[in-house]
Amino acid sequence: MSDATTADPGTHALKSTSTTPGQTEVSLTLWDGNGVRTGIWEVTPGTFASTRDGYNEICQILSGTGTITEPNGNSFDIGPGSLFVTPAGWEGTWTIHTTLRKMWVVQNIADTVD
């Protein structure tokens, strides 16, 4: 077992949906089973678009700060201790102020349909 706040998630790569040159991210899956996955993710400062296509995600911010803005203009600040859900179909823009790390749990929608 590792500490999610200090575990080495691996090597950062350029964030494909970033509008900020040089912004990077890394994700480390810690468990994968029965349509549910969990892990840690880290991203450097910058802005990027995000869409939840076909999955729900629970996010717990471990470190860093940012602001999430939804298409309707609503926004909320996130930082250590923030807990929120981005349901399937959700869209938004993340602006990362300081390198951010989150613990995530993803549920694939296709695995919940009977």
Rank of each mutant, 00 (worst) to 15 (best):
T112N: 08
L30E: 02
N74V: 12
W90L: 07
G79T: 00
A49Y: 09
T19Q: 13
G35Q: 11
I96A: 06
V85I: 14
L14C: 06
I96D: 02
G64F: 03
A110W: 11
K102Y: 01
I109S: 13
S75N: 11
L83T: 13
K15M: 12
W41E: 04
R37P: 03
D111M: 13
L100T: 03
F84V: 00
W104V: 00
V43G: 02
S75D: 07
A110T: 12
G35H: 10
A13N: 10
P45I: 07
I40T: 04
T51E: 15
T67N: 05
F48K: 08
E57M: 12
F76Q: 00
T93H: 07
L14P: 11
N74T: 15
I109T: 14
L100N: 01
P87A: 15
T38I: 06
L28P: 04
E70Q: 13
I68Q: 01
G66Y: 02
T24C: 09
T11H: 11
V36R: 08
M1Y: 12
N74A: 14
G64I: 01
T69H: 02
H97C: 05
V106K: 11
K102G: 01
W41K: 02
Q60T: 13
D53W: 05
I96C: 02
S27L: 09
T24P: 07
T98R: 02
Y55F: 15
L100G: 01
R37K: 13
T51D: 13
T38L: 10
G73H: 08
A7P: 01
K102M: 02
H97P: 03
T67C: 04
N72S: 14
V26Y: 00
I61F: 01
S82Q: 03
E42F: 04
S16R: 13
V43R: 03
I109G: 04
Q107R: 10
W41Q: 03
M1P: 12
D114Y: 09
F48A: 09
G22S: 10
G73F: 09
C59M: 12
D53C: 07
E57D: 10
H12W: 06
E57N: 11
P80A: 06
G92V: 03
G46Q: 05
T24R: 14
S82R: 01
T95G: 07
N72M: 08
W31S: 15
Y55L: 15
G64R: 01
L14Q: 11
D8P: 02
V105Q: 05
P45N: 08
G35N: 10
D8E: 09
T24Y: 06
E42A: 05
I68G: 01
T44S: 15
T95H: 12
S2V: 12
P21K: 08
K102R: 06
R101N: 00
T38G: 14
F48W: 07
Y55T: 09
L14K: 10
N56C: 08
G39F: 00
V85F: 07
E91I: 07
V113P: 04
M1W: 09
N74Q: 15
F48D: 06
T38H: 06
D32N: 12
V85G: 05
A4H: 11
I40L: 03
G92S: 03
V106Q: 10
V113S: 09
T86G: 08
Q60P: 03
S82G: 05
T86V: 10
T98F: 02
S75M: 06
A4K: 10
T99I: 06
S27C: 14
P87Y: 07
G54K: 09
